[in-house]
Design a protein around this nucleic acid. Structure first.
Lengths: 235, 235
DNA sequence: GTCTGTGAAAATCTTCACAGCC
DNA sequence: GGCTGTGAAGATTTTCACAGAC
C-alpha cells in the first residue's frame, strides 16, 4: 500500500451467488484488488496507444509484475470480461474497469489546503488524465483567496459547503497541516463530501459514510529506507 | 496498499530461531508490518509530546485502528521491547523502531525532477521531521540550474553521480514525468543510489540491489472513488 | 489485577491446475 | 495450438487465547 495507510471496509459476507455479476457492487473486494485494477487500466491505455487490440492475462501480468492467475482472479470479482483463446479486448476492458472504479465519468474534486503540496497537486496532470478534475481550491488564509492556480480559483474555507453543494462535488483532497487536518476533515464531512484523499500524517476519524485513504509520504520513504538498510532485493 | 504499488522482496526462509533477536535483519518481514512500524513510531512521538511515559499495545492500537495482538506481533518480528504488566516505554520504543527503519541517523536524500511535485517535496517539512534531509536536487532543464528551492541547490542531472558519491547519498525521490522516469531511474541506479521513492505512474525496472516504492497519486484517488461509488463504509 | 509474547486457529489472499471454449 | 474462468490447494497474515512476568 502505498504504503499508505488506508482504512476501508471489507465486509465479510460470503458471496455464494454464481449468477453472472451483471453490474455494480460485488459484495466484498480486497482493496489490493482494486489497487491492481487501477494498474491494469493504466497499462491497458498504454497498450491501446501502441495499437494493441487485445492482451492476454499472461502478458498484462508480465508487464506489471503480477501473475496471470492473479489478473484473471482480480477481474473475476467483477464479471467475465475475457474471450477464451483470444484474451481481453483492450478498449473494452478499459471501459469496464473505469466503470467499476467510477472514473467512466469525470469526477469533480475539491482541494483543501493550498500550501506547497496543494499547489503542486493543482498543477498535476496525472489526476485529470485519469478522469478527475479539481474544480475548486480552499484555504483559510485570506491572503491566498481570489487568486487562481492552474486555472482553479482559491476560495475561503467558509465557502466550502456552498461550493460543494452547487457543484455537486463528492471527492476532496486534503493537504492542510497535520494540526488542522482533523478539524477540516470534519468540515468536509459536514459539507457532504463522500471521499477524502488525505495527505496529513494523522489518522482521520470520520463518520462511517465518508471514505478516506491516507497517503503519508514520510512513511513511504521510510519503507524504502528500511529495505535499503536491511539489504532487501527488489525481485 | 496505499495504494501504492510496491514491489519489495519477501524471502521465504522460515525463521525457527528462538533466541532473542539482538539486532539487525530479521529474515523476512511483511511490508505491511514495516508500514505499521512507521505509524507506531509517529503515534509514540505524539504520546511522548503529551508526556505519556508508557503505552500498552491495546491503547496504541486503539489510537491507530489496529488490534492489540497486531501491535504485539508486529513488534515481535524484531525482538522483545515490552514490559509485562506495564506496556512499552515510549522513548525506548521510538528509538528501537527508528533503528529498525534506519531513521535513527539523518538520511541524506537526492530529489530528481524539479517540477510541480518536486518543488512541493523540497518544501515539505514532514520528511525532515522523520529524519530525512533532501540535500540535492537535479533537473535536466538548464533554466532551473543554479537556483535554490527551500535552501536546496538545483544542479544538472549530469552532476548526479559526482554529488551522490561526494555526499554519500543512498536514497532518491523521483519526480520526473512518466516518459523520462525509466531513463532517469537507470541513471540513479548507476550513480549508486540504493533506494528510490518513485512518483511516476510507471513500473520501474531496476537491478535487484536497488529498492523502490512507487506512489501513484491517481491510483490513490481512484481507490477513494471506488469506495464512494460502491458505497463502502469506513469502520 | 495488568500486560507482554507466542503457539494455535481462523481468515484472507495467491497460486495451481484443469475443464471448457476458440 | 492459445486462452479464460474457477474450484481446490497452498501460503500468508490476522486474530484468538493463554502462560508467564510484574
Amino acid at each position: 500500500m502505498p504504503f499508505a495507510n488506508e482504512r476501508m471496509s471489507d465486509d465479510l459476507k460470503q458471496d455464494d451467488d454464481d449468477r453472472e455479476r451483471v453490474e455494480g457492487a460485488p459484495e466484498s473486494v480486497p482493496k489490493a484488488v482494486v489497487s491492481r485494477l487501477s494498474l491494469y487500466q493504466r497499462e491497458l491505455q498504454r497498450l491501446i496507444s501502441t495499437g494493441e487490440p487485445t492482451v492476454s492475462s499472461n502478458r498484462l501480468g508480465q508487464l506489471l509484475g503480477v501473475s496471470d492467475a492473479q489478473v484473471r482472479k482480480d477481474l473475476a470479482y467483477f464479471g467475465q470480461f475475457g474471450h477464451p483463446g483470444i484474451g481481453y479486448h483492450c478498449p473494452e476492458l478499459v471501459a469496464r474497469i473505469r466503470k467499476i472504479l467510477g472514473t467512466d465519468q469525470e469526477r469533480r474534486v475539491a482541494l483543501v489546503g493550498v500550501g506547497n503540496l496543494g499547489r503542486a497537486l493543482l498543477g498535476y496532470k496525472g489526476l485529470e488524465k485519469q478522469g478527475f478534475r479539481v474544480v475548486a481550491a480552499f484555504d483559510a488564509d485570506r491572503a491566498k483567496i481570489g487568486k487562481s492556480i492552474s486555472g482553479v480559483p482559491i476560495q475561503h474555507l467558509d465557502e466550502l459547503s456552498d461550493v460543494v453543494a452547487a457543484q455537486q462535488i463528492r471527492l476532496a483532497i486534503l493537504t492542510v497541516p497535520a494540526e488542522e487536518a482533523l478539524g477540516v476533515a470534519d468540515r468536509l464531512a459536514q459539507s457532504g463530501i463522500e471521499g477524502i484523499l488525505n495527505f496529513a500524517p494523522i489518522r482521520l476519524q470520520l463518520p462511517p459514510h465518508v471514505n478516506h485513504v491516507t497517503v503519508d509520504l514520510a512513511i513511504q520513504l521510510e519503507q524504502v529506507c528500511f529495505a535499503v538498510v536491511n539489504r532487501e532485493a527488489t525481485p
